[in-house]
Amino acid sequence: MNNVCAKVIRAENVNFFYGQTQALKNINMQICANQVTAIIGPSGCGKSTFIRLINRMNELIPHARLEGKIYLDQQDITDPSVDPSEIRKMVGMVFQKPNPFPKTIYENISYGLEVNGIRDKYFIEEKVIDALKKAALWEEVKNRLRDNALKLSGGQQQRLCIARALAVEPKVILFDEPCASLDPISTGKIEELILQLKENYTIVIVTHNMQQAARVSDFTAFFLLGELIEFGKTQEIFTAPKDKRTEDYITGRFG
């Protein structure tokens, strides 16, 4: 299926529990480098839980328990001895609602670098500009870098969050419904950006928007009730899915 690409992320026999509730059931999945992988499925199917595992976001939840392993390249990122902030440098995340810090546009991006111990002001400035350019936001904000980020439109805020993620030079960027609160124009810009970014990053996107998954992704995974039902090339999933449950979901026959 996708056996020719380099696998950046490998989930092996992943089970995840919130207390007694099992949210993920024996997930085995491999994610290709420099490709966009979409994860689709109805609410509560475990898709967000799954991507949050990739940058260790679930471990602060009380009574949460993980079984199985997730590898980023050769490193087991589920290993408790690995510092989550080390993982998050390699795996950036962009959320459903844009969540810029209530600081200036510039500081939103410089912050991550400073937290990582970088002190060289010129280097930081270079990185900020570079990240804004990569996130296709530079032209819109270059004359107002000292404005509060919260003054930006929703779509701009989301691209700022992407720039913030890019500044620390991750390998992987996780998008959890990045366009859910955006209008179609802003959505189009984010999708364009995702397609550009895959040249340099590996992208995983959770989306409820089937057309979005079909437009931006190379591979699609369909989750249902915590199980990975089908994984394949996006073209195949959307024109000729193999599992009837996938067909029923993407054609809106569910329930």
Binding site: M210, Q211, A214, F238, T239, A240, T246, E247, I250, T251
Partner: peptide, 9 residues
């Protein structure tokens, strides 16, 4: 409708 899968075919 932007049909998918069997509908699209």
């Amino acid at each position: 409708y932007q049909p998918m899968a069997g509908d699209l075919r």
